[in-house]
Design a protein around this nucleic acid. Structure first.
Ligand code: ZN
Ligand code: ZN
Ligand code: ZN
Ligand code: ZN
Lengths: 140, 140
DNA sequence: CTTGACCCTGTAGTGACTACAGGGTGGATA
DNA sequence: TATCCACCCTGTAGTCACTACAGGGTCAAG
């Protein structure tokens, strides 16, 4: 009637390594499930749903702390979703900052690559850009 | 004549925490410097240059393993800079992949935010998108 | 001679897993 | 029934690049 799953089945259904499922339990993201006579974890559909939630949130780049909050909020059906939106907006802003940082980096690196004349290492613009500025100060 | 630095001075000059300098030494990125009578590390301009190189490379997003290779390559003045370029190109490709992934993420999240009607959590599109698909399967 | 800024070593914590080692369980097969 | 093998269990340690102590020692100024 009420379907149950072993940890391996749960893992297969949510694309999660068994070790990761146990890790989520250890840090309190998943509840301790009941155990079988042989001490195996016995999961039900509620566990499956919760783990699915966690994994989708992770795929969307939320941290486990944020996942924890989202799980908490998702239980408060009758509350306005303001806090959810706020959390997501924060995450989007963070992602945008990271995109920006990476684009800056990419720009710098491609410029260096473009300046390289493909000669000896001694003249390579890339190595040069990493070397300390040797201007002045040879003697104190 | 030949200027020396304490670890703290080196840190200040390269914007590196003292612990981080020691860490670099521990993992073999920086050589063990000579010690003073009081067992203090005594650095010279070569150390300063090397640490500067490491820090600039880190700012450009290279991993410590890549930094290690870059340091190695930078010593081979007479060799062609092919391997340097290759390493940098690999890094750029990696950055581009990360940018792409983040842009996809951003797209997904902003779409969810746009769909939210700001009602109760129970109807929130974001929470919905994270919940498991409840289609069918209510009974086996 | 005491203060306080600096230095030393060694260990443990971060995030989010992942990878064992060393065992126990459960169902199918010979 | 014995044996096999896939699966499960716990506990610990490794990853990356630091960072943060705790518990001391050193050194120059006042
Ligand atoms: Zn080149
Ligand atoms: Zn080059
Ligand atoms: Zn809303
Ligand atoms: Zn909403």
């Amino acid at each position: 009637m009420t379907q149950t799953y072993t940890i391996g089945e749960l893992g297969r259904l949510t694309d999660t390594k068994v070790e990761t499922v146990r890790y989520y339990e250890r840090i309190g993201l998943l509840p301790h499930p009941p155990r079988s006579s042989g001490n195996y974890r016995v999961y039900d559909r509620a566990h499956l749903g919760r783990l699915g939630f966690i994994r989708r949130a992770r795929e969307l780049g939320f941290s486990l702390e944020q996942v924890r909050e989202l799980l908490e909020l998702s239980g408060q059906d009758a509350q306005p979703c303001e806090q959810v939106d706020e959390l997501v907006q924060t995450h989007v802003t963070d992602i945008e900052r990271r995109i920006h940082d990476l684009q800056t980096l990419r720009q710098e690196l491609t410029q260096l690559l473009a300046q390289c004349q493909h000669g000896k290492v001694a003249e390579c613009r890339i190595i040069e850009a990493l070397q300390p500025h040797v201007d002045g100060q040879t003697a104190a």
